[in-house]
Design a protein around this nucleic acid. Structure first.
Lengths: 191, 191, 191, 191
DNA sequence: GATGAATGAGCGTTCATTCAT
DNA sequence: CATGAATGAACGCTCATTCAT
């Protein structure tokens, strides 16, 4: 499809620009210029700036979930799935630092709050990989009985922060440290 | 002091506005208006917007550290100090939600990166309560041997994220959950 | 070209406003308003205020040089060329009072100093009508041996000041006075 | 007088600051600070900024006239007086570059136009050293019959411009060049 | 469908002036 | 008398969005 070409140019350019420079450093005019399209063209594909920004996040999320589902140990113990997911998140972010940085920008803005609120209310309906982990863990009594939000925070907050520090050059998150880090997270949620 | 009255009006208003609306939602003109002062007045007390924003953070930090030092169990085991500090952070943030929300905005912006970088390089010189915890824990072999950044992330990231969820109404972080949460964090760093 | 219409509206308005009211009396907002364009439009054609101001001067300069080169007595004696140029400057300025007044504002500001400095250092490279006059006059020993700046000042300063007084209504610089004035200037530089 | 001390501090500081940095680089607050007085104090001695600026010029003018009247060759030929005045102007300006630079700033601003206009209308009433030169020159038929403004411009414009170039480092206006320059000016006005 | 010239509300900041102390 | 804290109009400039081509 020819028409999708421009859309993807815009998406990729916007992602990269916002990841590297922040929302402030990525005005519509600059996205258009670097993407090689007219300013008006962006508005043909995205109703406005907010829609573009939210779409960027959603597509990144889909890419990461797809990555996590590769070789997913379906049917294996919760513990194994937990390690697969956590390690996968680390691997994905380090392999795709722009996606991670964009995500940071996104969550560190009014968009992030809105997103989290929607997710909470929608979580019941749409099953996802993270929720499944929690629910099976609780049912099989291998993780502590805490609200899902607390489980997610214990499992992922240290990982996310450490990836951030890694990308900023503050720590070196190699395979060895990755393993120790995920083990620590598991220790905080397991019974 | 009469003259500090306006300064405090500005500080309080700016804090509140930025905490609630983010940096974007708190232009100088609005801060001035809500604080009941002229725009120019802000510039008598703060050289520019950046200085105001960094001052706000520094003062919040001092208040929190003072809070944490009340009844600090000096001379007690690392574990006890760890619980004191973590519980203290939770209590302080829930008691002072504006301080917490401001802090989130601050860390989720270029200011935050700059701040962390300075802290990392300056950590050797100025001793602080968090670094002390890490160093004693390592020396006494009660916490795992990991880089300090990883220790901090395991210890505090889940707590910060859970406070955020509590203030957004996603979880109810009462005394009981607080205790369990801190225990989980401890489990992830202890040997 | 349709697109150049607005650019010229801006140029003309800015010129007129600055000529009449000085730099202080011509803020970007007023230029935009009087030119019948939005403020932002000015910035499509000129990177910033400084660039606009320097462009205005450069375009005025080009117009005047073109005027002076009409019927220029190439190959004639230095004296004749001197009279052509001096008389031409007077005629041009009286015909285009806005150009002259703008020029005065320009030279009577930091822009003027910068301009003169560049001119002095660049004079060797780019040949111009004034420098040619000086060099031939010196070579043929018809003008006194003085630094070029002094020659220019003797030749043009009284003329510029008198044009200014004419436009302010202090003297009536008609053809007769013009001739006498240029003769006087020649008397001050000739051997 | 104690009270005049502050007035003079203000005058001297304002002069120096405006001479060096231009009107833009000399806000009232900075003048007050460098003069070691309160901002409000300036307004006790000068009704407003315009009055201060005009007073500065008037006092500079009086100092220069006083300098020119030292050893003034009263009763000597017009030519001799002309040389005394022109050489005196050069000497004074080079000895007091701040006075000269301030003068340039002043004349290169709306104040200058207003000043010249007033001077023209007032010249009939208040006799001055320059007018005397012109009137005697005309009466004795040693200078050409031209409007006074033209005489002044021929006599002083090249000198002023050359002093400016000297202070900017573009030429070296030493005693030798000074003599030649004044001679040139005389050549342009003498019969 | 694609474009980019045009727009103007809104931003951070400056500074001459006032007036309560 | 002297002060300087307080003011707010005004500045240069940015950028999301529109719409005629």
């Amino acid at each position: 499809m020819k028409k999708q070409k421009k859309r993807e140019d815009i998406i990729r350019t916007a992602m990269e620009l916002i990841a590297k420079e922040g929302f402030h450093g990525a005005p519509m005019s600059m996205i258009a210029e670097k993407a090689g399209v007219g300013i008006g063209t962006i508005y043909r594909y995205f109703e406005n700036r907010d829609v573009l920004i939210r779409t960027l996040y959603k597509e990144k999320d889909e890419r990461m979930v797809a990555f996590l589902l590769e070789n997913y140990p379906h049917g294996q113990p919760v513990r194994e799935c937990f390690f697969h997911v956590c390690t996968g998140v680390i691997d994905y972010c380090i392999l795709n630092p722009l996606d991670f940085k964009y995500s940071e920008q996104f969550h560190n803005s009014p968009y992030g709050v809105e997103y989290r609120r929607n997710r909470l209310f929608a979580s019941a309906s749409k099953p996802d990989i993270f929720t499944d982990l929690y629910e099976r863990g609780i049912a099989q009594q291998v993780i502590r009985n805490q609200p899902p939000a607390v489980f997610f925070n214990l499992a992922f907050a240290p990982i996310i922060w450490t990836i951030r520090d890694h990308l900023l050059g503050f720590v070196d998150l190699d395979a060895s440290l990755s393993r120790k880090l995920v083990q620590s997270c598991w220790d905080s949620v397991k019974i």
